[in-house]
Amino acid sequence: MDTELARTFLVVVAAGSFVDAAQKLHITQSTVSARIQRLEELLGAELFTRNKSGTTLTPAGQQFQRHAASLTRIVEQARQEIGVVSGFRATINIGGRIGLWEDLLLRWIPSFAAAAPDVAVRAIVGFEEDLMQGLIEGRIDAAVMYTPQARPGLKVELLLEEQLVMVSTRRNAASVPESDYIYVDWGAEFFGHHSLAFPNFSGARLAANVGWLGLQHLLAAGGTGYFPIRLIRESEARGALHRVEHTPEFRIQAYLCFSNKIESTALELALATIRRAAREADLARH
């Protein structure tokens, strides 16, 4: 079905008449009528009841409204995800956990733009399950995450190792979680190490599955928690955060995932520059 027919139908519904719809679409009323007539012929049902005051939906029209909205939304989403932005030769879709966008992928964007000014980037934030599904379906070209799953046709490559340290807004904070402790879920591996290190830990007043959320709360309201060194470096330098002495440090790995078959020079360059950004982040940590 021509999505222009569905879009015209939705504009008529919103405008309440063929005349007003024509004005919104910047076409003639006869063109609107022809499109709706064509749509009704395709569906084999009358969609509107016409009267002097405008148009109202028939029962069939009410049913089709849901489908028309879904159809136009899906097509627009597909255009955004796989279409080439005007003025650029290609578009790449890069995904990542929000904690890996912060200070890593966000730093990568300008360096990639300098290396490939004619390639547009669609930045996607998500958790591992959504990112993996996007890679499998081809909606995402490459993604950076902590706990990927092996899937046929996808390559999983170690990108960097995060060093997690306990920090606090308080100087000389206790070396065990106290009432102001913020627990961030950094994945199953972190959970295992954390449980062994703090066997008496029974839960935190605030638990977050997004590191950025935990860190922002920590800086705003105070407290203690585990965060990657690269995320707390600036706050530590200005004295807003302090490392808690005599506490274990944990390490978690971040991975770069992409298709085994790379058919785009733009994606090859994106992968190379992401790897370079990760090396620079690792050097800065030391």
Rank of each mutant, 00 (worst) to 15 (best):
E280M: 13
I124V: 14
S235E: 12
E178Y: 05
H217N: 13
T28F: 03
L43D: 03
R230W: 03
L256R: 04
G203L: 05
Y226A: 05
Y255K: 01
R38E: 14
V125T: 15
G225H: 03
N200D: 13
A204D: 04
L219I: 08
G138D: 01
G211Q: 03
L43W: 02
S235D: 10
R230N: 09
L57P: 09
W108H: 14
I74L: 08
P152A: 09
Y183S: 11
A68M: 05
L39A: 03
A113I: 14
N51M: 06
P248M: 11
A90M: 04
A173E: 12
V144D: 01
V121N: 00
T72C: 15
R151S: 11
L57M: 13
V144W: 00
Q23W: 04
Q253D: 09
L154Y: 02
Q65T: 10
E161N: 04
L47H: 01
R89E: 08
L269P: 00
N260M: 07
S30H: 09
R139F: 04
E41V: 12
L256S: 02
A22R: 06
G99V: 04
L106N: 10
I262T: 14
L218Q: 08
L71M: 09
S30G: 06
Y183F: 15
D118T: 04
R230S: 11
I92F: 05
H246Y: 05
F190Q: 06
P177R: 05
R279M: 09
R276Q: 15
H67S: 12
F18E: 02
E76H: 15
V19C: 09
I94A: 08
Y183G: 06
R139T: 15
A6I: 02
A60D: 08
R205Y: 01
S86C: 01
K155I: 09
Q80F: 11
A208Q: 08
D103L: 11
T147L: 09
D103G: 00
G192P: 00
E4R: 15
K261M: 08
Q37G: 04
E4S: 14
R151I: 06
A188M: 12
G83K: 03
I82Y: 13
A204M: 03
T273L: 11
L160D: 10
L42M: 10
Y255I: 02
G239V: 07
A142W: 00
S86N: 10
L5T: 03
S17W: 01
E234Q: 10
L42N: 12
N93A: 15
V165Q: 11
L271S: 02
F88D: 00
T224D: 14
Q216M: 11
L196A: 14
L71F: 11
R170Y: 10
A220K: 14
L231G: 01
Q63I: 12
I92A: 00
D180P: 05
T31V: 13
V119H: 00
S264L: 02
Q216F: 04
L104N: 04
P110C: 03
R205E: 07
Y181N: 01
I124N: 05
A284L: 12
H67A: 12
A197M: 10
A197P: 08
Q80D: 07
G223N: 06
R107G: 13
V85K: 14
A116C: 11
L241E: 02
H26T: 11
E76V: 05
L196D: 11
